[in-house]
Nucleic acid binder design. Sequence first.
DNA 1: GTATATGCAAACAATTTGCACGCCT
DNA 2: AGGCGTGCAAATTGTTTGCATATAC
Lengths: 131, 131
Amino acid sequence: MRFSYQREVIKNIVCSTKSHPNADWVFNEAKKKIKNISLGTVYRNLKILESNGTIKSFHDSSQVRYDGNVEDHHHLKCIECGILIDTDIKSDYDREKIIKNYEFEPNDIEFFIIGKCKKHKTQTTKKNKEL
Amino acid sequence: MRFSYQREVIKNIVCSTKSHPNADWVFNEAKKKIKNISLGTVYRNLKILESNGTIKSFHDSSQVRYDGNVEDHHHLKCIECGILIDTDIKSDYDREKIIKNYEFEPNDIEFFIIGKCKKHKTQTTKKNKEL
DNA sequence: GTATATGCAAACAATTTGCACGCCT
DNA sequence: AGGCGTGCAAATTGTTTGCATATAC
């Protein structure tokens, strides 16, 4: 694989944010460093970096989102604002049961906890308690 | 909500398959019953049925897939063929920790076990053992 | 020098939407 | 009768790709 400054910039952008950006956001950030970078280049390099194992991706609300954190971790997703929050929560499942009952070879898991974030959760303030 | 034959047909299609179909598949099935049904109608009704709670949806490889099984259940996803298999596997996570550490109000979870299905998993036949 | 990576724009795929008409209630 | 639901087609959005040029090695 040949060196490319564009790819280097894209990698640094994805790996230095926890915002789980989509290609367009990465493109806009990249333009700040490389004025004439093209969206196609961003898409191409995100794919390369993913197949590299440098970054990860997942589908969310009709877009692909990228994650520079390739450590095993899961996400909280707010149904109100869509924010994705990294967690160190571990999830347990019965691996042996899957192998045995479904003849399936598990490699990885994708785990999202859907709900409401700090800002959007139902408040349990005095005000509500009074209701 | 007014009755609509189209919606009825669409609901029955989604609720009587375990294939986790996308809109286009549903559209093609629906055409067998209603020759001139339109794709827009299918999309509109899938959304309505989802907001109803009649069906569920999730994003998978740049498409929305629908699931007539609204019971709490999780999926195995084969990286080779993309098949999605329903399971009754329960996953455990520390709900209290999420509420406390992240001030998050969890409602639902989305859980996919990624790996290789029966057909595509690494074989452990005599042949391989001999290698 | 050669082949890979890029910029650009056109092509694609999935989904949404505006509008006039039809059908439930 | 009134308004929600439909069919149709055009519009949008996210992503991919072909091609000529630029650049890493």
